[in-house]
Design a protein around this nucleic acid. Structure first.
Lengths: 151, 151
DNA sequence: ATTGCTGCAAAACGTTTGCACCTAT
DNA sequence: ATAGGTGCAAACGTTTTGCAGCAAT
């Protein structure tokens, strides 16, 4: 167990529901929090397999959803019909700019929205949960743009 | 041809590239612009099939991308790994709130972003192309929330 | 003892592709 | 004549599911 503090959060979350505390779930949590950047569920599965883990694809997919529910991960969608995750443990919330040529993802903190999403939800008759703000653009400097999609 | 003005835009766009002007493309355009709301490519294909059209799935998928390129449609992603389209012909730009319980989509015009996406792109060294701003929330009034996902 | 979780393989889903034929240029 | 488009079916990549056995409660 590499991430003790996160493990405690996960443990408490699992206890609250009708979820069982299994070693596989902590194993997935450790690998997910180790990952530096945005990853697909299958990416993580392959990494874990390469590290001789015995977890199954199904367990990885299901556990990632649990980790989103207890706010250890955030779920992202960058418009290519593939769910990505990133650690949100002890991380400031931020938004993303995606290069449409090379797929590079730049994170930025955006102050202009403040609590607009919350207020809009309220005004429209909804309880706010989440928002996503993505900018799609192209690297201006060709030297920094690799012109391929890094999947 | 039900949408003459849009057809002219499409025709001009096709001429500019090395694209051919085919009846199938105008057929897809007509059906897409007829659709009131957000639709998946396959939804449209099924509708057209039910209306005894002979267009193929491949043609529908490819033509929708062309219609995005000439700004007759916009492409949306609401976090469920499925590309949706909506008419943007003579429509003001807007953002979306999605109910996580019933899947209802509410459109709103958001003035707070103004040209923030453009400026952010510039500051980060990119040429702006597009942005997406989605709010995920839950219907506060249970009577207006159907509690099922309308796919 | 019970019920939830696991691994596996198969299925599902939206989407893309290969190919032979066709058609706009 | 020729490049580009079409329809069809098969393939693709990601995600979900069914199920028998297993393990946490």
């Amino acid at each position: 167990m590499r991430h003790k503090q996160a493990a405690e959060i996960l443990r408490e979350f699992l206890k609250k529901g009708k979820n069982r505390i299994t070693p596989e779930r902590f194993e997935v949590m450790d690998s997910a929090l180790d990952y530096d950047g945005h990853f697909g569920a299958d990416d993580l599965y392959v990494i874990m397999k390469n590290q001789k883990s015995r977890v199954s694809r199904a367990t990885v997919y299901k556990t990632l959803e649990l980790l989103v529910q207890c706010d250890l991960l955030s779920k992202r969608n960058f418009g290519d019909n593939m769910t990505r995750y990133e650690s949100s443990f002890k991380r400031q919330s931020h938004d993303h700019l995606i290069c449409m040529d090379c797929g590079r993802i730049v994170e930025f903190t955006n102050t202009s929205l403040e609590n607009i999403p919350q207020e809009l939800s309220k005004n429209l008759g909804f309880n706010f949960e989440n928002y996503s703000f993505n900018i799609f653009a192209r690297c201006r400097n060709i030297k920094t743009c690799k012109y391929y999609r890094n999947k």
